[in-house]
């Protein structure tokens, strides 16, 4: 008697529909509008282009520009993904294709546990332990090996400090590996076994099956994993705050300190006491909002294109 009531059904539909629309559309819109409203002072003062291209971040003279933070965010995210992508694809291949069944569950759990570690722990570990190793061992080694090579040597110039682009990207990549690996693994599991078996039947080796069947079939899944982790790396604050060195400059080498948008916000919000300073910080967060939006849209389009190509 209860289930047949038409009111319940309509009510449920509207209720759930409301929440879906609210959280998916209205809520982000409200955030955008609030950020826009709060940053009005900075928008009036600096405009769009000047704020985007200016490299000075000087609270004393109240001249603010977002380029160093934007560059820092994009560079660290990009390098982290470059490091993390092959490793996570490797982990996924190992789990789905190579590992004996008794090891599978163990490896999956281990990788997933990596995702459960709070980011502040990564930050503290990176700052207290990894930074020291990087400064004393890894970075001098890289400098002696890669330093003499033209172009690439430039990337490793400067005094090794341990808190820089390289260490940050490394820790970021460790943080995003579990996300990427688990999405890619799920995608690999979806490859129909008929396809793999027929490839084996045609005399393909394991490597050829992975290279020619599994990876092309799951390209969109891999792209999905990349997107998910890009989102995480873009917004990561706590671990980066420990490791970035927090200097608003565009890093010219991998061993230079830098800062990202979220770190600049976290560091400066509490002490920003002039209206323009506060407003500029809001403007900065508006930029982050827009950047993550654009990146996610681009990534979504990429997935759609890949899916289409596969369907042909």
């Amino acid at each position: 008697m209860f289930q047949k009531s038409p009111y319940i059904e309509t009510f449920t539909r509207y209720f759930l529909g409301f929440w879906a629309v609210f959280t998916g559309f209205i809520f982000p819109l409200i955030i955008f509008l609030i950020l826009f409203y709060e940053s009005r002072l900075a928008i009036q003062k600096f405009g769009f282009l000047q704020f985007l291209t200016s490299t000075s971040w000087d609270p004393v003279r109240e001249s603010f520009g977002a380029l160093p933070m934007i560059a820092g965010t994009l560079i660290s995210t990009f390098i982290a993904i470059i490091i993390a992508a092959p490793i996570s694809i490797g982990i996924a291949i190992f789990i789905t294709e190579l590992a004996p069944s008794w090891l599978k569950g163990f490896v999956i759990t281990c990788v997933e546990l990596l995702a459960a570690i709070p980011s502040i722990i990564y930050g503290m570990w990176g700052f207290l332990i990894l930074a020291e190793v990087m400064r004393n061992k890894v970075e001098p080694f890289l400098q002696t090996v890669l330093g003499p090579i033209p172009l690439i040597g430039k990337l490793f110039s400067g005094v090794p400090t341990g808190v820089d682009v390289l260490t940050t990207s490394l820790v970021l990549s460790i943080m995003i590996i579990p996300f990427m690996a688990s999405v890619v693994k799920d995608a690999f599991n979806l490859v129909p076994s008929v396809m793999k078996e027929s490839a084996y039947g045609l005399g393909a080796t394991k490597w050829e099956v992975i290279k020619d069947v599994v990876i092309p079939y799951t390209a969109s899944g891999i792209a999905g994993g990349l997107i998910l982790s890009t989102g995480r790396a873009l917004g990561e604050t706590m671990a980066v705050a420990f490791l970035a060195g927090n200097v608003p400059q565009i890093p010219k080498s991998l061993l230079e300190p830098f800062t990202t948008i979220t770190v600049a916000l976290a560091n400066q919000f509490t002490e920003a006491d002039t209206p323009l300073y506060l407003s500029s910080l809001f403007y900065l967060s508006l930029f982050l909002f827009i950047i993550s939006f654009i990146i996610l849209i681009l990534a979504k389009l990429m997935v759609l294109r890949l899916e289409k190509r596969w369907k042909k």
Partner: peptide, 16 residues
């Protein structure tokens, strides 16, 4: 540079 609660440091790294 000037005096403020956070300034535009010419050199160095920032720690929390």
């Amino acid at each position: 540079i000037g005096a403020e609660k956070s300034v535009n440091w010419p050199v160095g790294i920032g720690a929390k």
